[in-house]
Amino acid sequence: MFDEAVHALREWQRDDQPFQLHPGDLGWYRRFGLQEANAAVRIWRGDGQIVAVGLLDGADLLRFTIAPDARQDEELARRLADDIRTPDRGVLPAGTVYVESPRGTRFQELMFERGWQSDVPWTPLRRDLGAPVPDPDVRIEVIGHDHADVYAAVLRASFEKSTFTEERWHAMAVGSPYADARSLVAFDRGDAVAAITVWSAGPGRPGLIEPMGVHHDHRGRGFGKAITVAGAAALRELGSSSALVCTPSSNVGAVATYRAAGFDPLPEVHDQRRD
């Protein structure tokens, strides 16, 4: 099921579409192992084709998207809304839950009509990769299996309460999405100072940054911008048409970092919440 979902998501990525679930999101979740990833994926089919894909990202958040040609389909919207609002259908539990989906779909309209509310805003950002990306001005290394411990250590030092480990990097890297991904680490005088993983969806399609972090001992020195620029360059080498990232709008530092790295903010997006 996991690889089926990845394949569908690759096909749906377009620069003219709203920010949506990306195969890189599934690739990042693959750090928990294939069994966990398969358990977290939800697929909806119609006429023998996949028409929607979801990722249960934790117990109370469903991140999902709909095939571009089915986003105004009334019957599908009602089917999805019924599945998601009914706890015994195994998509989301009872209580306060959240759904992330693309803007402008009939599904979103229907959820609001049924009493769901907008949650806190997120800012998607995009960098066009039609032109060459400048040098990041720091030493960058592509991380493979031999140095997964370096990447993992930087990521743990970048996010409070992070549980990322070398073993989780290996679990992520053997997943099918990682065939079109790169993990990079930035170095300053021999110290690993920032890390990023970027995910291509194939040539001519937008790629995704997930995650990017700067070691807490090395912040405020431009390493976030540098590693983001390096990530954009890696996506361009992989054939991506653009680089995408999404961060909470309240994280003004992250938004500023991405803008400094040449990313333009897109209209804010909101999860939908049912209390």
Rank of each mutant, 00 (worst) to 15 (best):
D188C: 05
V252E: 03
G224A: 02
D73F: 07
G204T: 15
A256W: 00
V150K: 07
E4N: 10
G262P: 05
S240H: 02
F112D: 06
R126H: 14
G115S: 12
W12V: 09
L184F: 03
R14F: 07
M172S: 09
L125W: 04
R139T: 15
A157R: 09
A70S: 02
L208F: 05
V99N: 13
E166A: 13
G144T: 10
P211Q: 04
H270V: 01
A77V: 08
D83I: 06
A201I: 07
Y258E: 01
G224W: 12
E160K: 14
R221Q: 15
E268A: 13
V120Q: 13
G239N: 05
D275A: 12
A5M: 06
H170S: 14
V51R: 10
P267W: 01
M212Q: 13
F159N: 07
D264C: 02
L235E: 03
A256Q: 03
T123K: 14
R274E: 04
R221A: 15
A226T: 12
M212R: 11
W12R: 06
A81G: 06
E167N: 04
L62W: 07
Y151E: 03
A261Q: 03
D180M: 10
L9D: 05
P23N: 11
G202F: 02
P23S: 11
P87I: 14
A39S: 15
A201C: 10
L76I: 03
Q108G: 13
T228C: 10
G231E: 10
P206E: 14
L110I: 13
F263Y: 10
P102C: 09
A152R: 02
A173G: 12
A77D: 11
L155C: 02
A59W: 11
P134E: 14
Y151G: 01
W199E: 13
T228N: 05
E210V: 13
A233F: 04
S242A: 15
H145C: 14
D137H: 10
C246Y: 03
I143R: 01
E113F: 01
R259N: 00
P68V: 11
G220T: 09
H218S: 02
R106W: 12
Q49E: 15
V138C: 00
I43S: 05
P203D: 08
G24M: 04
A232K: 07
R259P: 00
T123Y: 08
L80C: 05
S176R: 12
L129K: 06
E141A: 14
V133E: 09
S241F: 09
D16W: 06
R30G: 10
K225S: 04
H22S: 05
V51A: 08
P18G: 11
R126N: 06
S240K: 05
R156A: 11
Y151K: 02
V174Y: 00
D128A: 15
P211D: 03
W122Q: 08
V51E: 11
V6A: 08
S250A: 10
E100C: 11
L125E: 09
R71D: 07
V97E: 01
L235F: 01
H170P: 09
A254N: 03
S242W: 03
